[in-house]
Simulated scan of single mutants.
Amino acid sequence: MRLHVDQRHERVLELVRQRGSLRVAELASELGVSAVTLRRDVETLAARGSLRRLHGAVVWPTDRPSEAARTPSTEGAVIGMIVPTTTFVFADIVRGARETVEAQGGRLVLGMSGYVDTEDPVQADHLLAGGAEGLLIAPSWFGGVPADGQEKWLLECPVPAVLVERSAPAGNPAAGLDRVRTDRAHGAAEAVAHLAGLGHRAVAAVLQEGPHAAQITAGYLAAVESLGLIPVPGSPVIRAHGEYDEMAEYLVGAVRNQGVTAVLVHSDEDAIVLVPRLRSRGVNVPADLALIAYDDEVAGLSDVPLTAVAPPKRAVGELAAKLILQRLAERASGAAPTPRQHLELLPELRVRESCGVGEAARGAQDQ
């Protein structure tokens, strides 16, 4: 017979009192409920002070807590991580998170959404049922921020969660979550500033639609304005993945009709595909058009090695993992949580051949 929630709470307390401590998975199995349901029960009872919650286990409170209870450890913690893919930027992010968790004696368990937003909560439930005590999440929010209530399931999550390379705008309830992401606007502005320093006055931008387009757009436009560059009509162009001919035609027109001499392209893949398309149309990189790619996954492997903005991918994973482990340690100790954190890491500009030597640099050499 299925127990009422109050009866279930009483049974949980009875079992923990009798045995002193129990693994959450064992307790859920004995009561015949899901791990997710049991975790919610444990959180409620721990908040009342009726029992103590350690990593993956519950302990009956005593007047003289054990050394393990006084000094909580993240050893043995299971961290779930949900990403849309393990390719491109997420490969190094996952690697950084895994190495950090394992260095603390924990284990990282991966779930993938495939950029399908409805898959995020499915993966989360699966990881929680398997014993995950905290979640690192890069939700499949198309614009990088939640829309139409996409964050609702995340706010109901019974374990600590950290957003990775995603954010929520002020006023959205998910803005109160911890998050770690790359400051992509800063990276775009650094790219434009580098091109301006080479003497380029009309810099276009061609971006791939998706979670990072808004940030890159903001940085590009801010830099064009602050540096007093010539605004390029239509830039930034934001295109769906694979619309290479349309991107190439836009850039050829911008070079020939609008005086554009440089461009910022997101992503590396798009930049590499565009270079030969531009060449076939009579526009050569870097002779006619200086180019900076964004992401630096494979930019250096182009036939003309591409200058690129490189997000600190591994560091994003490392810091996100450290933050979730900190939250688990706080819970285990019963200490008041430290303030929520929004961490933004600055990308690096890696200069290669695709920018050539600009007018400003040539002038310096001639002097």
Score class of each variant (00 low, 15 high):
residue 306 L to T: 06
residue 78 V to M: 15
residue 31 L to I: 09
residue 349 L to T: 00
residue 116 V to C: 02
residue 17 R to F: 00
residue 53 R to W: 00
residue 357 V to C: 05
residue 312 P to K: 01
residue 353 E to S: 02
residue 130 G to Q: 13
residue 333 S to G: 13
residue 366 D to W: 05
residue 11 R to E: 15
residue 141 W to N: 05
residue 303 D to E: 15
residue 59 V to K: 00
residue 206 V to F: 06
residue 190 E to D: 13
residue 164 V to H: 07
residue 173 P to D: 11
residue 263 V to P: 08
residue 66 S to M: 00
residue 57 A to S: 14
residue 346 L to T: 06
residue 320 A to H: 02
residue 357 V to D: 04
residue 133 E to K: 01
residue 32 G to R: 05
residue 171 G to V: 11
residue 193 A to F: 07
residue 302 S to L: 05
residue 212 H to S: 13
residue 97 A to Q: 02
residue 317 G to E: 06
residue 191 A to Y: 02
residue 72 P to F: 14
residue 335 A to K: 05
residue 67 E to G: 09
residue 19 R to W: 00
residue 285 V to I: 06
residue 165 E to Q: 14
residue 91 A to C: 07
residue 297 E to G: 09
residue 97 A to L: 05
residue 40 R to E: 15
residue 21 S to G: 01
residue 186 H to T: 13
residue 96 G to H: 12
residue 238 I to R: 12
residue 317 G to H: 00
residue 77 A to Q: 08
residue 94 V to K: 00
residue 272 I to T: 05
residue 242 G to V: 09
residue 360 A to G: 06
residue 298 V to P: 01
residue 186 H to R: 12
residue 185 A to P: 00
residue 332 A to S: 13
residue 121 P to T: 14
residue 269 E to G: 11
residue 69 A to Q: 15
residue 297 E to Q: 04
residue 348 E to S: 09
residue 189 A to P: 09
residue 250 Y to W: 09
residue 337 P to I: 03
residue 91 A to Q: 09
residue 340 R to W: 06
residue 291 L to P: 11
residue 122 V to E: 13
residue 214 A to F: 00
residue 152 K to V: 12
residue 108 L to A: 13
residue 174 A to P: 13
residue 363 G to F: 02
residue 9 H to F: 09
residue 185 A to C: 10
residue 245 D to V: 11
residue 356 G to E: 02
residue 310 A to R: 08
residue 138 A to D: 13
residue 167 S to F: 14
residue 193 A to K: 11
residue 62 T to D: 06
residue 88 F to Q: 14
residue 120 D to N: 15
residue 232 V to H: 02
residue 231 P to M: 08
residue 158 P to G: 07
residue 3 L to A: 10
residue 119 E to M: 12
residue 72 P to M: 15
residue 253 G to T: 03
residue 65 P to L: 07
residue 225 E to K: 14
residue 156 E to H: 10
residue 174 A to S: 13
residue 83 V to E: 10
residue 185 A to Y: 05
residue 277 R to D: 01
residue 269 E to T: 14
residue 191 A to T: 09
residue 173 P to K: 11
residue 156 E to M: 10
residue 334 G to E: 03
residue 358 G to D: 03
residue 244 Y to V: 11
residue 343 L to V: 12
residue 16 V to L: 02
residue 354 S to I: 01
residue 42 V to L: 15
residue 155 L to N: 08
residue 328 L to R: 00
residue 6 D to S: 12
residue 250 Y to L: 04
residue 85 T to N: 10
residue 120 D to G: 07
residue 235 S to C: 05
residue 216 I to S: 03
residue 80 G to N: 15
residue 203 V to I: 15
residue 261 T to A: 08
residue 4 H to I: 02
residue 44 T to Y: 14
residue 77 A to F: 07
residue 223 A to Y: 02
residue 95 R to C: 06
